[in-house]
Design a protein around this nucleic acid. Structure first.
Length: 401
DNA sequence: TCTGGGGTCCTAGGACCC
DNA sequence: TCTGGGGTCCTAGGACCC
């Protein structure tokens, strides 16, 4: 179907904001510019870490995920600001809106990343011009730096945007991957973490090139379907389209917190759950969402994670309802081990706008009886053949039983 | 490098249904 | 009573990403 010299080859951009949270803070407060600064959640927390840091901080050996304590030791002048997600969300929206003035084919992947398919609006000839303009406009109008990758597919575009930071523009052509990608260790690949790296190393696959040139069956045996997908990516093949609706509706809303001490007191845990239920409920309400699955997470002092969940019939969104389920799950499953972290997540999300239908008993019964009827229809047709029943003949009206 | 919190996607077994 | 096969939902855990 698609060949190497395909004239219909796509031009995909991957935009990646540079140390996004820190940059947004600097844009809002110019006194933070040009100095080592970092964003860190609750600095007085016993295990606080840096969420992001400025390039000036990086130059001094500071990095993301470093503990606040160690960062301060290394750089006493480091300015630390607490995260402000409202601000980041607003900046993010502004960026994506700007991208959509070029094309509708914008797919946000996270708060600070997006894919853009510019094949139709310029192809390869205008790609660099458009990319430079986007980068400059984001810098000028929003005061935010970004890196952009240009490539024939998502994987290569993502890889390219990572190659030059900050304020980079990198083109990655398929014919260049042998030289640029294949010598790198597999861990450098997006989608490969510690665990997959280990499995690959065990079958003597060390570099991205090794993976690209490996036997299909060997990789499938070691990693399953995912292995085959990674192998294709390593060969430069990725046919996922840029899908503007991909990240449209969220799948879960959760909140978790590391406790001030390793907790063993049940009543204290209840209090935490109450607080978490409130946070989750508040966000559900704000986004007009509800969900039918409540999951709790318990991380014990030895870093073992446990999750326990329950599916309920009617979507819930109220603090009291969420708390009640979470508490019951906790009572039922906690083994009285010391607790490091507790969390609540509500998933199987349904927008409130669809909630009244879900809650209607009439619709619920109708749903059930239709399912029953469909089952009967199948059974009868099995016995007497498919024209035996005129479809829809007893679906209408009420009182089916 | 032992440290947070927000997510998504995938896998696999068991229950249950047809 | 035994035997086959397909499918969906629920639950728990793992891997990965930002």
């Amino acid at each position: 179907m698609r060949t190497n010299h395909d004239s219909r080859a796509k031009v995909i951009l991957h935009l990646d904001m540079n140390s996004f949270f820190a940059s947004v803070e600097q844009a809002h407060d110019p006194s933070l510019k040009g100095i080592p600064m970092a964003v860190a959640g609750n600095p007085k927390h016993r295990r606080g870490i840096l969420v992001t840091c400025s390039y000036e901080a990086r130059a001094l050996g500071i990095y993301t995920t470093m503990t606040v304590g160690e960062a301060r030791r290394l750089c006493p002048d480091l300015v630390i600001v607490p995260p402000d997600f409202e601000k980041y969300r607003a900046a993010s929206t502004a960026i994506f809106d700007m991208l959509r003035t070029y094309t509708e084919l914008v797919e946000p992947v996270s708060i600070d990343e997006a894919y853009i398919d510019i094949t139709e609006i310029g192809g390869l000839t205008n790609a660099i011009g458009i990319t430079e303009e986007i980068q400059q406009r984001i810098l000028r109008e929003l005061d935010l730096p970004c890196s952009i990758g240009i490539a024939p597919n998502k994987f290569l575009a993502k890889t390219a945007s990572d190659m030059k930071k900050p304020m980079g523009i990198t083109i990655l052509r398929k014919r260049e991957i042998k030289k640029l990608l294949w010598p790198l260790p597999v861990i450098e690949m997006h989608g490969i973490g510690k665990s997959t790296e280990k499995k690959l190393n065990e079958i003597n696959i060390k570099t991205i090139g090794d993976l690209a040139q490996s036997e299909e069956l060997t990789v499938k045996l070691a990693l399953g379907k995912n292995g085959l997908r990674l192998r294709e990516r390593a060969r430069g093949n990725d046919f996922r389209p840029v899908d503007p609706e991909a990240a449209e509706e969220r799948k879960s809303v959760g909140s978790s917190t590391t406790l001030p001490i390793d907790e063993t007191d049940e009543e204290e845990c209840f209090k935490i759950f109450k607080w978490l239920a409130n946070k989750v409920a508040t966000r559900l309400k704000k986004e007009h969402l509800a969900g039918t699955v409540v999951m709790i997470q318990i991380r014990t002092a030895d870093w073992q994670n446990q999750t326990r969940s329950r599916t309920v019939l009617n979507p819930l969104y109220k603090e009291e309802e969420i708390y009640k389920v979470a508490k019951e799950l906790f009572i039922k499953h906690w083994t009285r081990e010391q607790i490091l972290l507790l969390g609540i997540t509500v998933s199987n999300i349904i927008p409130m706008s669809e909630l009244h239908e879900q809650l209607s008993i009439y619709n619920y019964e109708k749903h059930v009886s239709e399912e029953k009827i469909n089952g009967l229809v199948t059974q009868i047709e099995k016995k007497f053949g498919t024209g035996a029943i005129q479809k829809g003949s007893f679906k209408k009206g009420r009182g089916n039983e």
